[in-house]
Design a protein around this nucleic acid. Structure first.
Lengths: 333, 333
DNA sequence: CTACGGTGAATTAACGATACGTCACCTAAG
DNA sequence: CTTAGGTGACGTATCGTTAATTCACCGTAG
């Protein structure tokens, strides 16, 4: 509860000096002895600056918002780490929200839109939010950076198309020909991955299968595999768009008596720790999520400083295949 | 960028009236016509209140902090929902942090400790944080509520001991006698669950096995199973303390050629969506995490209002066994 | 002896929102 | 006719911090 005025009184100086000590301001000078007295007083009274007053005065809060679609999606683990780390480097704090809280008129949106709450917004997969919410967000006076391709504001993204290519190419190299593509929800990223799959298939002179069960999560994977088995020619391999859908693919395969990888090879996009612990352990394309988080924060700080943000697709590191046990070579026909 | 003063000027009233319209203050009255003019002006100028100024004036931010140990732990999914929902009901916003960001001297802690950032703190498993951090937090002038048993400040908790009992009792009823208890990290909750296991074993006249592989996550489960097989008499059933460790138990069982549930029954504590999609699907004790979140928020608001928080263990709903495929009855010996 | 520059600090005006105290005006009761 | 009370609104201090401006003092050069 101690304020700068209390410090000033105890140290026998003015608040200006206290503020100057705190901020290392060169404008207001003081002797070393005075500075020491002030610091002593701050420690004695256990002084903690009032962020609200600072924010008001400086028109800057030191907080950025990070809005994700499903917070409990394990692919965000490293993204979060990257964002927190980069924000900490810049002296910032992160206000985390998820899609649940992003309904139009919700407390979270209202607060985000107010001045003096955050200095900028990092948003992932903005196509998943209400149009109303997005319109409101765009009217926000502070910068917004998308962690996904975006038409109408700055963005950085991982190379989703490349991930689709890598997974498909890997299966092609294992001599698979009947490869299907399963799962993924409606975001741009998910379509990009399918695009990568399509391109590789076509380049190999094969007909890409339609995008099956474009939903999200475990159930979409199970549904997708069942749908795939209805196709004229049963697939020998599957690219799973959303990694958690891979869990569903494995479960459905087990339920249907299909052995993985002997009768069906599975490759997931996005690697999470869980994949290592499934049986069979799932071969997956690791995406640079940590770096995406860092790049997002740094880009946002550029925008906040009034500079343009270069943005674009993160090229370093590239998506990388982590080979485990869920995919194997097809014997020659 | 429009402030109340801008609204006041445009509507031809004083800022006092604008504020009154905004807050529905009865103190400053106005005619319906005036109110309408003010509202019109607010819409025209796209007015958004400045939270920093409000916080400063009111000495209240409308934000509460929620600090969790591992944000990506799926057991938090429903806890988060409960917290967000209850906070929204109270008109509050949630600032989410995880243990990563809770190092002493970190940006997050510093900000949390400052005035004018949050009105209260909800913390889970506070034994997992640095002593330094906890000491700092406790010196925080705003209320802290633990979502876990705590000695030195208010708390609410789920019934961890009961969960251990339920899992163990279930296996005992299936005629299992050699039941081990695996995994769990160092928190109080984890010890309570082991206690529940111990009690049930002793009540059945059996010798409880030592608490194996008291770590966290998938690997702890795998390690625990391997350790269990070193015991003089191999177990026929396992209670898994942390649910994600169940994934590791299943993987190790597969690797060792042990069939689940035919040769080994597995019951997990804490139910998450993933369990339904593993093969075999994992029988687990569902804990009322959503309600824990709600109870935590409501308790915290009580504390913030200066009232005592009843706290204690959440009795309704009770932990509930969700029977799936990973446990089966033991044939009579 | 005076003017001047440098040092070390105090005063004060914002930042935007809120709520207390005040006030002008009008109506109706005494 | 006076006045109490109700209605509708204004002025302003305040929250804690920052930074621009101002100021007092002292040593030294002219």
């Amino acid at each position: 509860m101690a304020t700068q005025r209390d410090i000033a009184r105890t140290a026998g100086v003015s608040v200006a000096v206290v503020s100057a000590v705190l901020n290392g301001t060169t404008h207001t000078r003081m002797s070393e002895a005075t500075r020491a007295r002030v610091i002593q007083a701050m420690e004695n009274l256990d002084y903690q600056p009032n962020q609200a007053a600072r924010s008001l005065r400086l028109n800057r809060t030191g907080m950025i918002a990070l809005i994700l679609h499903k917070l409990d999606n394990p692919v965000y683990t490293h993204l979060l780490r990257g964002v927190y780390a980069a924000a900490a480097e810049r002296g910032g704090t992160v206000l985390l929200g998820d899609a649940e809280t992003m309904r139009s008129g919700s407390q979270f949106v209202t607060r985000l839109l107010s001045h003096g709450t955050v200095d900028g917004i990092l948003i992932r997969d903005d196509r998943l939010y209400d149009d109303d919410v997005m319109a409101e967000l765009r009217s926000h006076p502070k910068p917004i950076l998308s962690l996904d391709y975006a038409q109408d504001h700055p963005w950085v993204s991982i190379d989703d198309c490349r991930a689709g290519e890598i997974a498909t190419r890997f299966l092609l190299n294992l001599r698979h020909r009947r490869i299907v593509f399963i799962g993924g929800a409606t975001g741009h990223a998910f379509r990009q991955r399918y695009l990568g799959y399509q391109q590789e298939m076509q380049q190999a002179g094969l007909e890409p299968a339609p995008h099956l069960a474009t939903g999200f999560g475990e159930q979409a994977g199970a549904d997708g595999l069942r749908q795939a088995l209805q196709l004229p020619a049963a697939p020998t391999a599957v690219v799973v768009n959303n990694i958690m859908s891979a869990v569903g693919v494995l479960a459905a395969a087990r339920d249907l008596g299909i052995a993985v990888p002997d009768q069906l090879s599975v490759v997931g996009i996005h690697d999470v720790g869980l994949m290592e612990h499934l049986r069979p352990a799932v071969t997956a394309v690791r995406m640079p999520m940590y770096e995406l988080g860092r790049a997002g924060v740094h880009g946002l700080y550029e925008l906040m400083a009034g500079r343009p943000c270069a943005g674009g697709i993160i090229a370093n590191p590239e998506p990388e295949l982590v080979v485990r046990d869920s995919a194997t070579a097809l014997a020659d026909a």
